[in-house]
Design a protein around this nucleic acid. Structure first.
Lengths: 322, 322
DNA sequence: GTTTGCATTTTAGAAGCTTAAAATGCAAAC
DNA sequence: GTTTGCATTTTAAGCTTCTAAAATGCAAAC
């Protein structure tokens, strides 16, 4: 609805909205420009535009020469939050990934082709390509143009990522600077609790993946060592792009969730050694489950050999995942 | 000397030169355009320009309608290699790092300022900033401009990187896809041998760092798991930017080199378990040596507290490192 | 039939200009 | 003195044009 609002302005509007929802800004509170600017680390201009946005939504009211005040209209807040969420465009990154996986893009592409196809400007495209290159999806050719790399021949790449996580995640829990983030822990604890209910929710494999990843990111994120945090993020980002044949064993989900909850308990109790041991076992378990699912005993040693097309046992349905 | 040659052309010239030096292209061999284009994954244009460059240097000779031939002039080859090395400009990245560490750049900077100061175009600057951001040196401010992050308060960051390496490097040696790269191994073996001579060369701390890093990168690089390889590269890149007070204990260098050589032996013999154990001990050793040097027993638990300025024991001389 | 030499086409980076949007300054209102 | 409301300045992204350089096509030479 807003006539024109930059992503930054919308982001700030969302954050203010969140503060209102959290009770930090009660109904009637004055929304002071300088104060908000400081809090959100921007100047007063985008703040003012965000407030205009919130005024339009009925969340804030303008009083002449006194600035904006919180109205306290819950319904309006919800509506505003909704519309502010919708406004964000998906990055071409995901669409390119999907098209490539579906075979709609050739091995070699030029920036020109991509810019035209996805209707993005050069700079934006470059950012996306850089990110893909970092994730080893694509690489720059020596002259010009880009080459899609053999898409993570999935079974092997997946196994590699698990071995990597096995090396770093338990170690992260043993970092001397480890500090539990109570808020984040509470949030993932809530999610995991849902999964161990007598009647667990039916989740798509995407949702399962999200919840699981969030859990692991949260416990690693508290380790205070940026090397571990970043490494973990990278491994997950890449893993996220490939999903195997829907893996829909509710028993296994619940078992994993039980282990996750136990891990939260141990970390909150400061029993890091024990947590690390459990995490190691836990990752091994998951890996094993997946490996069985994929019939990895027949997996060739080298990653670039292919299974004969007739042998469909352990075949993957590689689907883009978002 | 060359009137104009792109970085790509120079790179290709270097590679052809390397092939000649390695005997792959003996004196008198014809340098066929299409063949070289295929080998270096480019079209025939940059190949031709590279050959012209080599002709100017006296390494190749042109025969009318028969293309270029290797002359076999060793002296010319050496001279050419030399001049092709010199031609490469240092990226602004390093200079920005140096200036920031020396306090010649403020906490907040705009792209405009940097582009003017370092005489680079917007695109190049952007690339450099992106890289710095990935290495957690700098971050984009919400509105515009960039903020330098509190420079890796060195003692803590260094310790963090060692703990990270301790988690990944030994694990990399145990990867199932580990394959020794004989050529690369031979090269680092030669470097390490030099250090254990009765009269070892006097090395600057930079050179010591380079040789050490190359060693670790090489043994990790053979693991076949891109997650480990990339993580290791990142940790080293960041570590590279900070150097402590020149650490000049020749005995310690030699001891480390002995361990490095032992590691190469074990890996070549396929004794990965043992190699991983030794590497773990080795990294612990280095960390300990450095920690003693820094008086880390007095190091506060949290990374952002500062040592009292009066206490200079274990103080660091943070110097840019290149 | 291969390979070269050169002309032509295509690509992506650079330079300059325009513009949306963020930062800043300041008088007026409280 | 604070805070607002608005004008002004500054920044960086977008757009257009231009250009260096890589890719490609093809006739001629062997």
């Amino acid at each position: 609805m807003a006539p024109s609002s930059s992503p930054l302005v919308r982001r700030i509007a969302r954050r203010i909205l969140a503060d209102i929802a959290a009770g930090l800004l009660p109904p009637g509170a004055r929304l002071k420009g300088a104060e908000l600017a400081l809090r959100h680390d921007v100047s007063r201009s985008p703040i003012e535009r965000a407030l205009l946005l919130l005024e339009q939504a009925g969340v804030a009211a303008r009083e002449p020469n006194r600035g904006f005040v919180v109205t306290g209209d819950r319904a309006a807040s919800l509506r505003a939050a909704q519309s502010l969420m919708e406004t964000d465009a998906a990055p071409p990154y995901l669409q390119i990934a999907a098209d490539r996986l579906a075979g709609r893009l050739p091995e070699f592409v030029t920036e020109r082709l991509l810019a035209g196809r996805y209707r993005v400007t050069g700079a934006v495209l470059r950012q996306n390509l850089t990110r893909m290159a970092q994730e080893r999806w694509i690489e720059r050719r020596p002259g010009y143009g880009w080459r899609f790399l053999p898409v993570l021949d999935s079974a092997e790449a997946h196994a590699a990522s698990y071995r990597f996580r096995l090396a770093i995640e338990p170690a992260a829990l043993l970092e001397p600077g480890y500090r539990v983030d109570a808020t984040a822990f509470a949030k993932v604890r809530g999610e995991q609790m849902e999964l161990v209910q007598p009647r667990p929710p039916r989740l798509t494999s995407n949702e399962w993946f999200d919840i699981g990843t969030r859990f692991h990111a949260t416990i690693v994120g508290c380790c205070g060592n940026p090397f571990f945090i970043e490494a973990s993020q990278r491994a997950n980002r890449l893993r996220r792009l490939i999903v195997y044949r829907p893996f829909d064993d509710t028993r296994a989900f619940a078992a994993a969730a039980h282990e996750h909850l136990k891990l939260l308990d141990l970390l909150e109790a400061g029993r890091h050694e024990q947590a690390a041991r459990l995490l190691r076992v836990h990752l091994e378990d998951i890996r094993q489950v997946k490996a069985d699912l994929l019939g990895s005993e027949a997996r060739p040693a080298s990653g670039d050999r292919r299974r004969k097309s007739g042998d469909r046992r352990g075949e993957l349905d590689v689907v883009p995942h978002f």
